[in-house]
Simulated assay, not measured.
Amino acid sequence: MAGAPRVEHLVTSGTFSLDGGTWDVENNVWIIGDDDEVVVIDAAHDSDAVLEAVGDRRLSAVVCTHAHDDHVRAAPDVALATGAPVLLHPDDQVLWKMTHPNRRPDGPLADGDEIVVAGIGLRVLHTPGHAPGAVCLYAPDLGALFSGDTLFAGGPGATGRSYSDFGTIITSIGERLLTLPGETVVHTGHGDTTTVEAEAPHLEEWAARGW
């Protein structure tokens, strides 16, 4: 028996670099599947830790919510060790090449795509703003959203650096994420988990602040 599909959580540590600055960060790595098959969302920093968490299960894909270096640095090594494809929205190629100039992702992500693992679907939602090719993954069967750096507990992802735009991320959150069922659990790229219900009342406040 493969067991019920579930969400597993790993935290890895490293740095994020862009626009000439470097910051220490901790990233959430999400593993979705059962005892036989999983996908990894954001292979961040430490390929050995990700591979240990996957164990002897079949890894069907390494899904990148966006291509900032902290989220994709370990992706090629995880793919090489497992044979799994690295999937990225094409609009983030410019960021991917900053970290991996000699290695392309294996396949594209497009809005509306469905990635199936352990009998459940992960629906791709293109949510630009934090990065042009940022995506979230919605798993209605799990009541879960994997938001990358688009939506956090308490506010939207940062938009003060290259290839980001505040108005765009607010539109993405309002039209694509906060329209999901309120009880949807939001598993973020950094920090604490939240829910759509907890974040939805604050959209106008964020927009007014120019968060």
Rank of each mutant, 00 (worst) to 15 (best):
P101F: 15
I115M: 13
L177E: 01
L18E: 00
T193L: 15
E8C: 11
T22F: 06
T65H: 02
V39F: 07
V11W: 06
E8L: 15
A139M: 06
P76E: 09
V72Y: 04
P85W: 01
L87E: 05
L80Q: 15
L122W: 04
V117C: 07
S164A: 14
V25G: 03
V62R: 07
D165N: 10
V94E: 10
D106A: 07
D92S: 14
H9V: 12
A134D: 03
L122G: 08
A44R: 09
F146R: 00
D149N: 13
P128I: 02
G182H: 11
D42N: 15
H202C: 07
C64K: 02
P128M: 10
L95W: 09
D24K: 07
F146K: 00
L178D: 01
V54P: 13
V39Y: 08
V135M: 04
A4T: 15
D42E: 14
I173N: 08
D192L: 09
I31E: 10
A81D: 11
C136W: 05
F146I: 00
E114N: 06
A118P: 08
I169M: 04
A158V: 01
R58L: 01
V116N: 10
G133A: 05
A53L: 14
D165W: 12
H130K: 03
V78C: 14
N102E: 15
H89Y: 15
A131W: 09
I169E: 01
M98Y: 12
I31S: 15
R209I: 10
E114A: 13
S164L: 05
G189D: 06
A44E: 06
T22L: 09
A61K: 11
T193H: 10
V62T: 13
S172A: 12
